[in-house]
Computed example of a mutant assay.
Amino acid sequence: MNQVIKEGNEFIGYEYKDIITEPERASLYLDGYRHFGWVPDDNFQVSAAKGKITLKLKRNRKLLNKAELTRLQRHFDSCVNELDKIQKSATFPPMMWAILIGLIGTALIAGSTFAVTADSPMILLCVILAIPGFICWAIPPMVYQKLLQKKQGQIEAAMEQKYDEIDDICQKGDKLL
C-alpha cells in the first residue's frame, strides 16, 4: 500500500498570476511583485513568444493585509504603464515632425515633376521646387535625432519621478508583509 509522507509543517494554498510583458520590463515586475507577496512559480519556466515574456507567479492565499497589498499592486501596475507611456511620448513628436518634413519634400518633388512634364516644360520652376524637396528628404533623420535628444532630457526627470514612486509603493508593500 502506498503511504503518503507529509513534508513540512502545514499546507499552504497558493493563488497564481501570469504577467505578460516585454523582456526589458520582466526584472521590474519580478522585483516589484516580490514586495506584494508574489514569488516566481518554480514549477514553470519563464516562457517567451512573439517578443513577450510570460512570468508565472504565486503567493500564499492566507496572506495578511491582502486587500491593501492588492491595492498597492494595482498602483504599481499603473506606474509601470505610465513609464511605458512616458517612453513612447518621447519618440512620437520627433517622429511626426520628421514625417511631416518628408511629406513636404515629397510634395515639392511632385510639383517639380509636374512642372517638368507639363505641355510646355518649366525647367526653372522644376529646379526651384526640386532643391528644397531634396533638402526636405535629407533632413528628417537629423531633425528626428535633435528633437529626440531634446525630448529625452525632458522625460528623464519624469521617469525618475515614476521610479521613485514605484520604490515607495514597493516599500509600503514590503512593510505589510
Results as ranks from 00 to 15, higher is better:
residue 2 N to T: 14
residue 2 N to W: 15
residue 2 N to S: 15
residue 3 Q to F: 15
residue 3 Q to A: 10
residue 8 G to L: 06
residue 19 I to S: 01
residue 20 I to L: 14
residue 21 T to N: 05
residue 23 P to Q: 07
residue 25 R to K: 07
residue 27 S to Y: 09
residue 27 S to M: 04
residue 27 S to E: 08
residue 28 L to H: 05
residue 31 D to Y: 03
residue 31 D to C: 03
residue 32 G to C: 05
residue 34 R to T: 06
residue 37 G to P: 01
residue 39 V to R: 12
residue 40 P to W: 01
residue 41 D to M: 08
residue 41 D to E: 04
residue 42 D to E: 15
residue 49 A to Y: 06
residue 49 A to P: 08
residue 50 K to P: 01
residue 52 K to H: 09
residue 55 L to T: 06
residue 57 L to T: 02
residue 58 K to M: 10
residue 59 R to W: 00
residue 59 R to S: 01
residue 59 R to G: 00
residue 61 R to V: 09
residue 62 K to S: 06
residue 62 K to N: 09
residue 63 L to E: 00
residue 63 L to V: 03
residue 63 L to F: 01
residue 64 L to K: 07
residue 64 L to T: 06
residue 67 A to T: 10
residue 68 E to I: 04
residue 68 E to G: 05
residue 70 T to E: 04
residue 71 R to V: 11
residue 75 H to L: 11
residue 77 D to I: 10
residue 78 S to V: 12
residue 78 S to N: 14
residue 78 S to Q: 13
residue 81 N to K: 15
residue 83 L to Q: 11
residue 83 L to E: 11
residue 87 Q to E: 14
residue 87 Q to P: 09
residue 89 S to A: 15
residue 91 T to Q: 12
residue 92 F to A: 13
residue 95 M to F: 14
residue 96 M to A: 13
residue 100 L to Y: 05
residue 100 L to G: 09
residue 101 I to Y: 05
residue 101 I to Q: 08
residue 101 I to L: 12
residue 102 G to I: 00
residue 103 L to K: 04
residue 104 I to F: 07
residue 106 T to F: 12
residue 106 T to A: 10
residue 107 A to F: 08
residue 107 A to D: 01
residue 107 A to Y: 07
residue 108 L to T: 01
residue 111 G to C: 07
residue 113 T to L: 12
residue 114 F to R: 13
residue 114 F to I: 13
residue 114 F to Q: 14
residue 114 F to E: 14
residue 115 A to R: 11
residue 115 A to C: 13
residue 117 T to D: 13
residue 120 S to E: 11
residue 120 S to K: 07
residue 121 P to A: 08
residue 122 M to A: 09
residue 125 L to T: 05
residue 125 L to R: 11
residue 126 C to M: 08
residue 126 C to L: 03
residue 127 V to I: 13
residue 128 I to S: 10
residue 128 I to C: 11
residue 132 P to Y: 12
residue 133 G to I: 02
residue 135 I to D: 06
residue 135 I to Q: 03
residue 135 I to M: 04
residue 136 C to H: 03
residue 136 C to T: 03
residue 138 A to V: 13
residue 138 A to Q: 13
residue 138 A to N: 13
residue 140 P to Y: 06
residue 143 V to R: 02
residue 148 L to A: 02
residue 149 Q to R: 07
residue 150 K to H: 06
residue 153 G to W: 09
residue 155 I to S: 10
residue 157 A to I: 15
residue 158 A to G: 12
residue 158 A to T: 14
residue 159 M to L: 12
residue 160 E to I: 15
residue 162 K to G: 10
residue 163 Y to R: 07
residue 165 E to T: 02
residue 167 D to I: 15
residue 168 D to S: 06
residue 168 D to F: 05
residue 168 D to L: 08
residue 168 D to Q: 07
residue 169 I to S: 01
residue 169 I to E: 00
residue 171 Q to S: 09
residue 173 G to Q: 00
residue 175 K to F: 02
residue 176 L to Y: 02
